[in-house]
Simulated assay, not measured.
Amino acid sequence: MSGVLGNHFVTQIGILVNDVEKVSAAYAEFFGLEQPEIIITDTADIAQTRYNGGPTEARAKLAFFDMGSLQLELIEPDHQPSTWRDYLNEHGEGPHHIAFVIEGMQEKIMLLEGKGFPLQQKGEYTGGRYAYMDTFKELKVLVELLENDKQ
């Protein structure tokens, strides 16, 4: 059985934080890893971020730890409307999503929406696109779809 997404390999866990520099330093020390460079998501004109159906200027500071087959993503959102900001306000710091690499973003979004998991936020990044599906009620975490452009 291939599951809803055709892939059951979790590629990333996203964790919301209030201070990405502080928390990434703590992770680096805990795991004996180098503290990663903090990156900032693209501006709205590039990212084309949409949240709950409308455009948003939301941006976030990100830090990525590659942990073998799994990546940890630390996310410090700005105060613009986004899944990150609303989730952090509502639930506090902690896990936000589990991510899967998929092919056929539009088809997968439509498939999940048909199963009662609405699209919450989507956007572009250099080399691909993402979509957060609201699976919280059933899975207690959001599912992020990642589609990378073919090289």
Score class of each variant (00 low, 15 high):
Val4Lys: 15
Gly6Asp: 09
Phe9Trp: 06
Thr11Phe: 01
Gln12His: 11
Gly14His: 11
Val17Asn: 07
Asn18Phe: 03
Asn18Val: 03
Asp19Asn: 15
Lys22His: 13
Ser24Lys: 04
Ala26Val: 07
Tyr27Gly: 05
Tyr27Pro: 01
Ala28Met: 10
Glu29Ser: 07
Glu29Phe: 06
Glu29Cys: 00
Leu33Ser: 08
Gln35Glu: 06
Gln35Ser: 05
Pro36Trp: 10
Asp42Gln: 14
Thr43Gly: 11
Thr43Trp: 06
Asp45Thr: 08
Thr49Cys: 03
Tyr51Met: 14
Gly54Lys: 15
Glu57Val: 14
Ala58Tyr: 11
Ala63Ser: 14
Phe65Arg: 06
Gly68Gln: 07
Ser69Trp: 02
Ser69Phe: 03
Leu74Trp: 09
Leu74Phe: 10
Pro77Phe: 12
Pro77Cys: 02
His79Ile: 11
Gln80Asn: 14
Gln80Ala: 15
Ser82Asn: 01
Ser82Thr: 08
Ser82Trp: 08
Thr83Pro: 02
Thr83Glu: 08
Trp84Ala: 14
Asp86Gly: 02
Asp86Glu: 15
Leu88Trp: 07
Glu90Ile: 03
His91Cys: 01
Gly94Ala: 00
Pro95Asn: 10
Ala99Asn: 08
Val101Met: 10
Val101Phe: 08
Ile102Cys: 00
Glu103Ile: 07
Glu103Trp: 12
Gly104Thr: 06
Ile109Leu: 08
Met110Val: 01
Glu113Ala: 00
Phe117His: 05
Gly123Met: 03
Tyr125Cys: 05
Gly128Asn: 03
Ala131Phe: 05
Tyr132Ile: 04
Asp134Trp: 04
Asp134Ser: 06
Thr135Tyr: 01
Thr135Val: 00
Phe136Glu: 08
Lys137Leu: 04
Leu139Trp: 07
Lys140Glu: 04
Lys140Gln: 11
Val141Trp: 03
Leu142Ala: 13
Val143Leu: 11
Leu146Arg: 12
Leu146His: 04
Lys150Leu: 09
Lys150His: 07
